[in-house]
Design a protein around this nucleic acid. Structure first.
Ligand code: SF4
Ligand code: SF4
Lengths: 161, 161
DNA sequence: ATATAATGGATATTACAGATCCATAATAAA
DNA sequence: TTTATTATGGATCTGTAATATCCATTATAT
């Protein structure tokens, strides 16, 4: 399980837009050369961000992108949810029937299974709550916040992963 | 981004082992029929869990699996890390050079970039900390804990996702 | 010995992220 | 109006990782 490259690109693109002076549109050429992503690929990502109302886009000469609202109003969670999707991280055996019927086979009452299923299921509860912990943190951190942090930072250490 | 099916299988398998009486080995046949996974696939998963010391396995007649330590000593994080790997959820532009050199192009001193990179980078800091929130929660919740929850649960609601 | 049961290597299959291409629409400027 | 510019969205290709199966081998109880 990993965040997609798209999320990394999206976050960085928004950081760049947040830095650019308000009112000025930043084109896909500029963004892609800064981020080292192809124009075609990055434009898909920007398009998604636009569809979800995080950025505005204007076509034509001097067109490009700008933030649709203040950087302090765009959370990391916003970006992650647009680019990773909004499904839960943990899904119970997609597509198939419930995997634990055999547990009931031994018992006599189908109404009192050994595990609880559905909403009350302890496995799913833990996994969903764990996801929630991460989401809460992402929601509390905005692009603006990260931008501020950048100001008070140490010397450059190249990231050549 | 989603947890793999393997993680779901692994968690459920451990729940089953935790329920089974101590000392009794549970075979792959029994597990796979309970979980609805193929024997071959599930055995790979069990093998990983064994290599990481979460379960013990014994071959041959009456062989099978049992927990290697108390269910109260096996956390959800243990399972997730074995089956999802231990890489960070967020990795900076794997393989390529750092994506933001253009930011420095405008400036004069390469030693004072507009963004901080590497360890101090605000983007990576937020993403890693978010992951940490989830991991902490997963570490605080054990198989035993989930098992206890199951006892105090409401009526069965089939999970036919 | 024999039947049982996990192991690990090899390999196939599938799904999805990553990536590119192109025809179209929208916009500003000449 | 024409032209150059720029984003859009559909189609499609590719590469990789998750999923899945097969089988030869090893280990163990009876
Ligand atoms: S037992 Fe719980 S976690 Fe497992 S499939 Fe059912 S509802 Fe989901
Ligand atoms: S700017 Fe930060 S998050 Fe982006 S690639 Fe560099 S170190 Fe990673």
């Amino acid at each position: 399980m990993q965040f997609s490259k798209s999320t990394a690109y999206g976050l960085h693109a928004l950081m760049l837009l947040a830095k650019s002076e308000r009112g000025r549109n930043v084109g896909i050429k500029e963004l892609s050369s800064s981020l080292g992503a192809s124009e075609s690929y990055l434009s898909k990502i920007m398009s998604k961000l636009r569809q979800d109302g995080l950025v505005r886009a204007v076509t034509g000469v001097n067109g490009g992108y700008e933030l649709a609202r203040a950087a302090s109003e765009i959370t990391f969670l916003d970006v992650v949810q647009v680019l990773e999707g909004r499904q839960h991280l943990y899904e119970c055996f997609h597509g198939s029937d419930h995997p634990l019927p055999a547990l009931e086979a031994a018992g006599d009452e189908p109404e009192t299974p050994e595990f609880a299923f559905g909403e009350g299921c302890p496995v799913k509860q833990v996994m969903d709550a764990a996801e929630q912990q991460m989401n809460r943190y992402l929601q509390q951190h905005t692009i603006q916040l990260a931008l501020n942090q950048a100001g008070s930072c140490d010397a450059h250490t190249a990231c050549k992963k």
